[in-house]
């Protein structure tokens, strides 16, 4: 393995000790040096959250995929040309490009067909949606049933229902159920953690992690 290739092995675990800004600056530098593996690392790191954000905003998974791909292509070309002024702010820049493309995509479908850099297209060519979308309804039902059965008190189940179904805010829930902010945070955190564990255990959702 060449030193460049080794340098470009920026998977998530390797990045855990670096700050986001350091990782972004590293990726930008390596892409500027022509390291193709760094481009793949950029796509792997930023592609899924970018797609999630676009889907959240457009409610259109296909449009979100198209815009994500185009945004990544534009940014990779910019990084290859070393014309990004603040590479450490790569995430924010990608977001800005993607949002502008959303508007442009609506306005002119043909604009996206003027691409000339086929290498950059190859680097970001990944038509798959987020793997989380592959979770079937049945898998989710199963995981939720298991989670609800394990919650220690009806009050904790009530907290989840009020947060996720009734969309009540924290203060309202805490007041109504007589719990403090700390307990509320703990229930929510544990529920997500347990839900993730159930999904991982069933081998359906190995990527999920919960922030501690």
């Amino acid at each position: 393995m060449s030193s460049r290739s080794r340098e470009a092995r920026l998977d998530v675990d390797d990045q855990s000790e670096q700050s986001e800004h350091e990782i972004a600056a590293d990726l930008a530098r390596q892409i500027g040096q022509g390291v193709r593996a760094a481009e793949q690392a950029l796509v792997a790191r930023y592609g899924p959250p970018l797609h999630f954000m676009l889907k959240q905003r457009t409610r259109d998974s296909e449009l979100a995929l198209d815009v994500r791909q185009e945004a990544l292509r534009i940014v990779i070309e910019k990084l290859r040309a070393r014309t990004l002024e603040q590479p450490e702010r790569l995430g924010g820049y990608l977001r800005g490009v993607a949002l502008k493309l959303c508007g442009a995509q609506r306005r002119k479908e043909s604009r996206r067909a003027t691409t000339t850099d086929s290498d950059a297209i190859d680097a970001v060519a990944d038509e798959r949606a987020d793997p989380a979308e592959d979770l079937s309804d049945e898998q989710l039902r199963h995981a939720v049933r298991e989670l609800l059965a394990e919650l220690s008190t009806p009050r904790d189940r009530d907290i989840l229902t009020r947060v996720y179904l009734l969309e009540e805010d924290k203060d309202t829930i805490c007041t109504a159920l007589g719990v403090d902010s700390l307990h509320f945070n703990r229930v929510l955190f544990r529920a997500k953690q347990r839900f993730r564990e159930v999904l991982v255990r069933s081998g359906q959702h190995g990527e999920l992690r919960v922030v501690r």
């Binding site: 954000m53 995981a143 989840l160 229902t161 996720y164 993730r196 919960v210 922030v211």
Partner: peptide, 25 residues
Amino acid sequence: YIGDPDLFQELKTADSLRRGLELHE
């Protein structure tokens, strides 16, 4: 969350949990 894989995973977990609870409901 675009630049933070851990935070993004938490977001996805919460989204899946919401979908699961809606189905259960």
